[in-house]
Design a protein around this nucleic acid. Structure first.
Lengths: 209, 209
DNA sequence: AGGAAACGGTATCAAATGATACACAAGGCA
DNA sequence: TGCCTTGTGTATCATTTGATACCGTTTCCT
């Protein structure tokens, strides 16, 4: 079936055929446009979104500031929702589709059931907890011990390594929102980097050298 | 037996008697003096420490700066070790006994076994992942969006609420190490708070009003 | 008692970051 | 074409935080 292909080509770590059947029987696919809000701050979460295509941006806000927590990529799920589902909690952060995105919506009640029943699902859950924690700890360390200019450079290098292109499409405002600072600060820092020959600035695009 | 009492009076969430037996058969109790290092940064972790008495302080360091991640209290375990055990990883942070501390040392290999076998253990694992994540996220938010003076006040109020005493035994240097800043900064802020009548300073002790 | 170590107060200066304001350019769209 | 939105450069000033230095006090240890 066409639907099953779409699901399991990104969820190939799910090996048990009985689990595959449970998934197709109990879950549905939801689609979001770029910019759509998937989870609001403080929302009670009833489903676990597993990304099939696209990406979800999870971030924190305070007044007009934002800071990125992480992106949920295909085959991954959202830490917030996962822990919120386990304990019927509110999500502490916002989640927005970073591009046109399709998710597999897993009903909250099945998460724990499957976890005791299927090794691969349990693995998925544990792996999510662990990698999201490590990620957050990493970001935490940067925020605590590093200056913004280093964080900017690391962010750009990280992006470059992931996309394997040295031109990164992002505006100064967006970059500020990723790092929890303001546009002016970013513009100032980027200009310094350009003057010292580390990168070249284009409109809404940064070219690392 | 006296040992079993010591173990399970703090681990009363472990209900299965078979699991209790496995614990007494396979685990041992380790004792640490205040200040003893339990896990070094970058160490491979072979056992999961579950605190029976005392407390473990888990924190990050960079040069001469420190910042608190969390305390592991009786009946709790350390997130780092847990995730390090699951994936045979290095611990990203340091752990030190905050007071004379006894731990139950669970061999790493049993963590996953028990997790699929015993509901209460699985619960313990998931609960640990979740609460440590929430804690870290909370600290993260403070560091990103708040000024140090607010963080100092929140730290003190938090301590007061936990110990139910308005006199908090802590030196300025220790407080700086909890919050990732320096002694002079803390002294300055505390003096402001004292002048504005929010607290009274004593030697190595802060009295909240 | 005497000295070392820990603790805290404070002044001075520097650096990092933030806030505000304004100007101009590029691109989209009616 | 003309206008509006978005993106960027940059100056000025304020605030926050950090670094350093020096001093006096308290506590601990021998």
């Amino acid at each position: 079936m066409i639907t099953e292909n779409k699901i399991f080509e990104n969820l190939n770590f799910i090996t048990e055929s009985t689990l595959r059947k449970e998934i197709t029987d109990n879950c549905k696919i939801l689609s979001f446009e770029k910019g759509d809000t998937i989870v609001r701050e403080g929302q009670y979460v009833k489903i676990l979104p597993v990304v099939l295509t696209g990406a979800i941006r999870v971030f924190q806000t305070k007044e007009d500031r934002e800071i990125l927590l992480y992106y949920v990529m295909p085959g991954e799920t959202c830490m917030m929702s996962l822990s919120a589902c386990f304990f019927n909690n509110q999500s502490p952060s916002k989640a927005v589709a970073a591009s046109p995105t399709e998710i597999l919506a897993v009903p909250a009640r099945l998460i724990t059931t499957w976890q005791t029943k299927y090794a691969s699902w349990n693995n998925f859950v544990i792996r999510t907890f662990k990698s999201r924690y490590d990620e957050l700890l990493d970001t935490f360390e940067s925020v605590v011990f590093e200056h913004i200019d280093q964080r900017v450079m690391e962010y750009l290098q990280d992006r470059r390594d992931k996309q394997e292109k040295s031109r990164i499409k992002i505006s100064h405002q967006q970059l500020a929102n990723e790092l929890g600072t303001t546009r002016v600060v970013i513009s100032r820092i980027l200009k310094q980097f350009e003057l010292s020959g580390k990168l070249v600035l284009h409109r809404a695009e940064i070219e690392l050298l």
